[in-house]
Design a protein around this nucleic acid. Structure first.
Lengths: 334, 334
DNA sequence: CCTGGTTATGAACACGTGTACATTTTACCT
DNA sequence: AGGTAAAATGTACACGTGTTCATAACCAGG
């Protein structure tokens, strides 16, 4: 290539990296030769010289090949991450992290970073206060969390404001006139679930409604757990007039369970879901739910992570605001 | 590292690549030193030497940041691809290919391959007989298609057997006693849609039911297009007793439309969906639908692609068999 | 103990680029 | 035209590994 263009290798390098540092005439000469030869700088050699891999790893936990993440926001999230990374010249590489049970103390994430495999990592689906995350941070690796955070750990994160989202949803029900509001939450090993419970409690408290332990239920974010919750909820001492559910899939299952029991939704019981996934619009009645832009979370997270890697900053905490989407699953109580 | 172990760099290299070629004593010496120093061979340098990137690109088409793929199988597919690749030491890198309209003649996929960015590509969501694919093949790049194929092109692919899946679904309806069976298909610029129409026709033909152009409808795989199709289908000269729908999302929309018009499902009209996505179980009645293992498609495809890259073969065509999943949306006709 | 052959190791080089430094060319001012 | 500073280009080297070839250590058979 350098010989074809009649210049030194250094000049070729300059044309592609700091074009302004080379005279217009030779610049054109080089570009023409590059076009003729279909020459493109070898990315591997470039990265090798720079001492980087050019890869950002997105680490995804799985149990026996089963995703623990809602697939619905997975695609959107990756889209955001991918756009941010490609704009900054990094590759988005997917790494699947196999675990055997929901809460594993000894997760070793370091293996993905050793030997310059990736320049940084985005960890999805990690658990509340997971010790391996703190360890990873201490070892000096560049990474951040999505959908989780650990206070005072210095670990960067991007998350939806789950407390606020939950708060808004419950407040919406309260404003409709509901007082007996049940909450079907997800597993408490997720920070998400913890925060949503806080939001639920805060909304109730602010309106002078005492927290009733009997109206709190826990599912596993799957449809079936919503379905089976229906029976439990209906057999409570004083059944609720509204139920806030921590994701749409469970809400859909719950809805099926309620309809089977002859309960009218929203006539007898109102439901608010969470996620605004496909499921929300497909169900009858369509679900009032809480929407979060996972594209935004992904994009901003990846963008900030790259800044950290480049040394422009060394910490970020992003909190994206959810919005309530009103559809057909709520009404005033009788 | 080499000095710490008291050996030459060449020996270190051998320990990690052909351990049997080095004496047990020095091997242990090297491994111990590696452990002490937390040494891991630099992947970038290794790839640089080998002249490879170690990356396989999964190329995903989008229109204005909107995925054209069903998100439901996206995660499963990537899981399969990721497992196969990591087992073989390759990275799965996601590449988003922005296009402006559904059918673009001039898609340039070559840019993802230039300069050793990736060693091979897996293209998703491409269109039937897309000329740019043939061009890509002619230029000698290693790649394959998922959910598409081009006959006699020599282009490798992995796909579900859509003709067979569609055939089974329609045959199931016929066996229940249906004769007036409508088909709500997806856009015909997808090979998938073309094949499903063939399967529909074949099943009808085999049972002596003439193909009726008036019972063929086309949507865009979105829920709304199913919803609006309900009215059209009901206003046909002789409305069908069953409808085969080319994906679950449209089927769910259709279901909503039918219920709103007072049609009972499956009493008045039976529905069969396609995909076996989340949507199928969330809807009432739950959808009888066609299931495909996208994990398998992804895994086998990636595995074969790596073989091609390593020169072990130079073509493959994988066809995965769909299965019908019977739920609650079908009954015998009146 | 020597010889021939086998096995284990080291020395030197190559891969394709970016960068620091040296050198040459250009531009401008007097 | 001469001189000096600035801009443009070239030279030489480094990055960390795998590989080839040469050398050294070892081993078995006589």
């Amino acid at each position: 290539m350098a010989v074809k263009a009649g210049v030194s290798g250094a000049t070729v390098s300059r044309v592609f990296n700091r074009p302004e540092s080379v005279s217009p005439s030779t610049r054109e000469k080089v570009l023409k030769a590059a076009k003729d030869l279909d020459y493109h700088p070898n990315v591997i050699a470039t990265n090798f010289i720079k001492g980087i891999s050019g890869n950002i790893g997105v680490i995804i936990p799985r149990i026996k090949n089963i995703h623990m993440l809602s697939v619905y926001y997975f695609a959107e999230l990756l889209g955001g991450i991918g756009d941010a990374l490609s704009r900054r010249g990094y590759n988005l590489v997917l790494l699947y992290h196999d675990i055997t049970a929901p809460v594993m103390p000894g997760n070793d994430y370091t293996k993905y970073f050793k030997g310059n495999k990736v320049d940084g990592g985005i960890l999805l689906g990690t658990f509340a206060n997971e010790p391996s995350l703190v360890k990873l941070k201490e070892e000096g690796y560049r990474f951040c969390l999505i959908n989780n955070y650990i206070e005072n750990s210095g670990i960067s994160y991007a998350d939806a404001d789950n407390l606020k989202g939950s708060y808004k949803a419950v407040k919406y029900l309260i404003n409709l006139g509901h007082e007996k509001i049940a909450f079907l939450n997800g597993p408490m090993y997720y920070t998400n679930s913890i925060d949503r419970l806080k939001g639920y409690k805060r909304a109730m408290e602010e309106h002078g409604i005492p927290f009733n332990r009997e109206l709190l239920f826990e599912g596993n974010y799957g449809r079936k757990s919503g379905y089976t919750a229906a029976r439990k909820i209906l057999s409570a001492k004083s059944p609720p007039s509204a139920i806030f559910v921590s994701n749409d899939r469970m809400a859909a299952g719950l809805l099926q369970g309620l309809l089977e029991s002859g309960v009218k939704v929203p006539g007898d019981i109102s439901i608010v879901g969470y996620d605004d996934s496909d499921v929300a619009t497909v169900v009858t009645p369509q679900l009032t739910t809480v929407h979060v832009s996972f594209y935004e979370i992904g994009y901003r997270c990846a963008d900030e992570l790259v800044k950290c890697i480049k040394g422009e900053k060394d910490y970020f905490g992003i909190s994206v605001q959810p919005k309530i989407v009103i559809r057909k699953s709520c009404s005033r109580p009788r």
